[in-house]
Design a protein around this nucleic acid. Sequence first.
DNA 1: GATTGTTTGTCAAGACAGTTGACGCAGATC
DNA 2: GATCTGCGTCAACTGTCTTGACAAACAATC
Lengths: 401, 401
Amino acid sequence: MSTPPGGSLRTLRRANQEHLLSLLLGQGPLHRAELARLAGVSRTTVSTIAGELIGLGLVAETPAGAGSGLDGRAREVLSVVPGAGVAAGLDFTLETVYGHLTDLAGRPLAGAGVTVPASAHWRERLEAGLALLDDLLAGAGAGRDGLIGVAVGVPGPISLATGQVGPSLPGQAWAGINVAREVRSLLDVPLFVENNTRLEAVAEVTHGAGRGGPGDVFYFGLSSGIGTGLFFGGDLYRGDTGGAGELGHVSIDIDGPACPCGNRGCLVQYAGLPAVLAALRPRFGAGVTIGAILTAAAEGDRACAGVIGDVGTLTGRVLANVCNLLNPGLVIVGGELSRAGEVLLGPMRTALRRYGMALTRDVRVVAAELDLGARAGALGGAVLVLRETPGLAAALLERRS
Amino acid sequence: MSTPPGGSLRTLRRANQEHLLSLLLGQGPLHRAELARLAGVSRTTVSTIAGELIGLGLVAETPAGAGSGLDGRAREVLSVVPGAGVAAGLDFTLETVYGHLTDLAGRPLAGAGVTVPASAHWRERLEAGLALLDDLLAGAGAGRDGLIGVAVGVPGPISLATGQVGPSLPGQAWAGINVAREVRSLLDVPLFVENNTRLEAVAEVTHGAGRGGPGDVFYFGLSSGIGTGLFFGGDLYRGDTGGAGELGHVSIDIDGPACPCGNRGCLVQYAGLPAVLAALRPRFGAGVTIGAILTAAAEGDRACAGVIGDVGTLTGRVLANVCNLLNPGLVIVGGELSRAGEVLLGPMRTALRRYGMALTRDVRVVAAELDLGARAGALGGAVLVLRETPGLAAALLERRS
DNA sequence: GATTGTTTGTCAAGACAGTTGACGCAGATC
DNA sequence: GATCTGCGTCAACTGTCTTGACAAACAATC
């Protein structure tokens, strides 16, 4: 309804500036003639505007890529100046803060993580995160003024209405805090706040198993909690109040054990990491870790494979319902448990085929690909900034007014 | 990413034409000065373009609305010519074809239905529908050349990949048919094909319980089958291959009775109309109808209220899972069963509050409002044409070249 | 090595679209 | 009746893009 206006002549020039800049952002380096063809504009106009963009310091010209075997005069390649803007993601997990930077094209620039004791106050965690961000920026030769935006990931759902973080069972450090307001008081750049799982999902969709794939994607994050990321038509979906994607507390057994959430027989009580650990503690002892279990499963340990397979069957049944309802083009299984690979995915696919409807049975189910440790979330944050900053090209032009 | 281009000067004129026309379409009659303010363009430009649009026969000028108590010269009101375009919906249900027309602003113009025996061949149904469409057009003083598009509703899911209608248990008349191709061979206008439930959902969202409401809406259609309509950010969502919204075959009891779909204990086996009828047949006899049951329930019959209440509890539990996952801002309960009102909705809300998570517990759950008999689907079709015809203003300009 | 063909990037002239400022007009207010 | 306010239109001006022409740069061919 609120369609982009045609507007005045000054608007037209600005629109063309934005259009050419966003083509350079999206399609990478291009020469003037190609740019003219893509934009549906004459080469002369491109020349004029390219001159303006170069003058603003947003675009740079690489003298020539000669000897490329093509007829004609060598093309002079235009590209967005990498330092013209940096996007950042900060992902706060239980004990660690990860940070990641990308350039304007979404290429990773730098990433790192620092440990903060789980007992630390949220304010301390926040300061550690911002210190990390400044370190990364310094390392990349940029400052806060080069930041085009920051996305922050925290555990737990975030209410779009109040901005507060809702309760999340492990890691209550952020519960009730208005993260957006707190960060804004310390850092004056465009800001996004999401839960960890959604940021991981964004990273997987753009840089991992979902890159180049369909726009309707279901990301299934299996870790301590069970969260998901929903993409419809290529866009991250948050729900009316920001609560979309909670699948851990779907009840799969109405007579099951009581869950702290108030429901009974929740999926997470059977398929969350604590449940997996508890099931294998009799065999491996109290100190068993998820890493050890995954290793054992990979080496053929029957008990481990059995427990993980059961999780696959259970989650696969839920996945069948999700696919019936949403009919995604791709399912990406992420989270720590996804490193079990086929031991988990095999039974999950079997259950999906068994319980899903015909039209949705062909959906591809793949494991997450990114192996940045848990840094994926931070990378996803930076990517989210690039994807969701309204009119990135416009914002860049605005700064250099 | 594929943002609208700035483009050339000719493009700019066209963009401004489209912009002004879509403002008139969306905001109703406006005078030139107001239009100029809304579009961010000078009054002179509006005058010029308005002249062109009037010349094309798309816009008409109402001499004056004088004596309105306002200072200054009387404004001359511009509005889209009603006859400049008509949108149509045809909804094919088991025994009836409904048709509806709206003008370009979405205002209903005319609607009607004709009965076609359930045993009739799909081609016969199609011809009856097109005859109905021509009748409606003639009654509205238009012809097929005034049609800007038609949306056709059929029972069963439609594959975006093949265009074929999938199997739907009641009413196999369309199974395997490529409805889009068949209609196109008889009628040369832009065409949409959807399942009945989605069209009803569109009507409810724009003209019924959802008008003016949030953009994330879950429409829960309870009839013979159980279908849904999903709206994310105001847009109808179809899924990767068109199969989104199938909720009837969610399994709610893994050990339940076998369902023709291949699964066990499907929701529709407990909450579909046939199940409701079967449950009450011992009390009311073999010839019992859904109308009789609804009447009895409204008059306080315990057995009817009990059975319908059970359906509410069951569907409410499923709804809780859906709301956890999708966090809609509004749930509209439609379908024949929704006419039971609070007898159904009360238990449904109770189950939702009981089994849903905190963030999604506040969602409003309301009954569908439109009481056009089953004509809602046809109206929804016409509305769908208006909403989804890409660049309606552009298309209108294109025709009058 | 010179010639030909092709594509690029730029320049000058022209066409086109929108704005500015001024004017006449139509109603309300004093 | 005089004045004020806002609407719609005309003429002159400004800004933006395009067209057609040209030099530059590279590959292929004679």
